[in-house]
């Protein structure tokens, strides 16, 4: 009951934050030099003779405070303009690219957490022993590696080397094999291939999309797990020194309960913040990883738009990304409030 009113309050606040974001984005579209706002309302095929009419139609000759009103109206109706680099309206591009990125991000986060959290705990329990040094070395190495190099190396080993030796290999690029796409038809409920194939009960589609997910998700996970593991290690070490851990041992609890119940939940608090932040930044698209693995997601779209001078695309991307960040932060705050009863809401 208390929690639901907290969520409601945060949702109301969310509206104001998004309003602020939208105002900033609008001002960017109007303030940046060389950007004609009309680009949002034309496609490459629109004859330039039609421009004055379009300008009039979209109130682009009116003062800014009138324009912002119409712009908001459009945004609320999902009309963020036309992105030439994507070859479609911004809203449609976001609806296509975001699920792809979300799928990659979720997979990467699952891999990263399931490796980083146990490693962080191990590292803390065996602090300054060889297990700790090995873990820290591994984590430091993987997260210091350049993502494009790591991605290419994974492709080289798990696609090229396996394939030339006649072994089963992992697909190096794309989200689905063309032959599967042709032979299997599924209904896309969410745009997340793995989830959709499960909902459709289509096994070949599931296996194929999972195999495409492995390499890019692993690349992202390897790079992002370093921070998580280190935060987990340090917060676990801090918690293990707390009085209530002595108390838990003093009560005669088995060591596994002391660590995986009493210490773990407390150590997860700072880790949650870090995981939330890295999740949000991954959701806004991992440009290099998506490029290397030809994964058509938010990152690829943003990179293409920037290269093609597609300001409308970039502004649309900015607005979508800001919204994602705000929403993920909200989720992190809620998780935090559930984990830590001391947070008053």
């Amino acid at each position: 009951m208390k929690l639901s009113s907290f969520i409601l309050r945060r949702l109301i606040l969310l509206v104001f934050v998004l309003f602020g974001v939208a105002v900033l984005v609008f001002l960017l579209t109007r303030a940046a030099p060389g950007i004609d706002p009309i680009f949002a309302y034309v496609t490459p095929n629109t004859p330039s003779s039609a421009y004055p009419v379009i300008r009039e139609q979209h109130h682009l000759n009116d003062p800014l405070y009138v324009q912002i009103w119409y712009w908001f109206w459009d945004v609320l109706h999902g009309d963020l303009g036309y992105s030439p680099s994507a070859g479609m309206p911004v809203s449609m591009a976001a609806a296509i690219f975001f699920p792809a990125t979300a799928e990659l991000t979720i997979a990467a986060t699952i891999i990263s957490l399931s490796v980083a959290i146990p490693l962080g705990i191990l590292s803390a329990l065996k602090s300054n022993k060889w297990q700790d040094h090995a873990t820290r070395l591994f984590v430091m190495t993987s997260s210091s590696m350049a993502v494009f190099w790591l991605g290419l190396m994974l492709q080289f080993v798990f696609f090229y080397l396996l394939r030339v030796n006649g072994l089963p290999s992992l697909p190096p690029a794309g989200r689905i094999s063309p032959d599967v796409l042709v032979s299997q038809s599924i209904t896309h409920y969410t745009g997340l291939n793995v989830l959709d194939s499960v909902l459709n009960g289509n096994l070949p589609y599931l296996v194929d999309s999972l195999s495409h997910l492995v390499l890019p998700a692993t690349t992202l996970a390897l790079v992002s797990m370093g921070l998580t593991a280190r935060i987990m290690r340090s917060s676990m070490l801090e918690v293990l020194g707390q009085d209530y851990i002595t108390m838990a041992r003093g009560k005669g609890l088995p060591e596994r309960v002391v660590i995986y119940k009493h210490a773990f939940k407390n150590a997860m608090l700072p880790t949650t913040t870090v995981v939330g932040l890295s999740f949000a930044s991954l959701l806004s698209g991992a440009v290099l990883t998506e490029k290397i693995f030809a994964w058509n997601g938010m990152g690829s779209w943003a990179a293409n738009a920037a290269l093609a001078n597609d300001t409308v695309g970039i502004i649309g991307f900015t607005l979508v990304t800001a919204t994602i960040f705000v929403c993920v932060n909200l989720v992190v705050d809620i998780v935090y409030a559930i984990l830590d009863p001391r947070i008053s809401y």
Binding site: Q242, D243, Y244, T246, M247, A248, G250, K261, H262, K265, N266, L339, D340, P341, R342
Partner: peptide, 14 residues
């Protein structure tokens, strides 16, 4: 054993 400071010796999240 009963410890000195009951706030720090009780686990805050349970």
């Amino acid at each position: 054993m009963v410890f000195q400071d009951p706030l720090t010796f009780l686990n805050p999240v349970f």
